[in-house]
Computed example of a mutant assay.
Amino acid sequence: MNTRQYIRSFLVAALLMATITGQSKAQNFSETCRNISLQGKYLSAVCMTSMKCTPGIESPCICDFLGMNCRIGRPTAIDLNQGISNLAGALKFKGTNFSTTCSNLHLEVKSGYEVAMTGSVTLHAKCKTGGLLSLDIPAALDLNTGLSNNKGVLLFDQ
């Protein structure tokens, strides 16, 4: 392993540990969660807790890309209506009840392809712009920018 790969691996491991232990503002929940899906306005996933595990013995056991950091996975869900709003046809964190004015909700989940890349989880919808001539326009929001995994529980960042 060359120096550059070592530094990238170290930084990714440090960020992952900070996310798991809750020592810093988390985000990028998809780095420590699997089986991410959307049922109506509820986002669900199986997310790493702080408890270590051994793959094949404890289940579910979720490991990082290198397989060196393995943690027990916990099923969790969050009502996206409790932290996302529709502001003139745009989805925004810090607000509530976006689903009352948005329809056709779906997720686009992409995995990171190498250690230094973060995957993405994007919420897509058609949202009303409001006003007299309210239109339904496409809207998208990267959920990794406002959701965190706190020891196996999905939370909105404050």
Rank of each mutant, 00 (worst) to 15 (best):
N150I: 09
S99W: 02
Q5A: 12
L11A: 10
M68H: 13
N104T: 13
T54C: 04
D136K: 02
A90G: 02
T100E: 01
S134M: 04
L38Q: 04
S134Q: 05
I78V: 15
L43K: 02
T19R: 11
T54S: 09
I62M: 08
V46S: 11
L132Q: 11
M117F: 08
T54Q: 14
K151S: 15
K128C: 02
G73V: 03
E31V: 15
A13S: 12
V46T: 12
V153M: 13
D157G: 01
V46N: 03
L141F: 15
E31W: 08
V109N: 08
I7W: 10
G40C: 06
L143K: 05
G95H: 03
L135M: 11
G119T: 05
C33T: 15
C61A: 10
E108I: 06
L135E: 00
F10R: 12
A116N: 05
F98N: 06
G131F: 00
A26W: 00
D64M: 13
C47F: 13
C61P: 05
I137K: 00
T100N: 06
G119H: 08
I57D: 10
V46R: 04
N149R: 01
T49E: 09
L38G: 12
L143I: 09
A90I: 01
T122V: 15
Q158D: 15
Q27W: 08
K126T: 09
R34Y: 11
F156A: 05
F156T: 04
K92G: 00
R4Y: 06
Q23H: 12
F10A: 10
M48T: 07
K25Q: 13
G56P: 06
F93S: 04
S103K: 10
I7H: 09
M68Y: 10
S111H: 15
Q158L: 11
T129D: 01
S85D: 09
S111W: 06
D136L: 07
P138L: 02
Y6G: 07
N28K: 04
V153C: 04
A45L: 11
Y6D: 14
S50W: 00
E108Q: 12
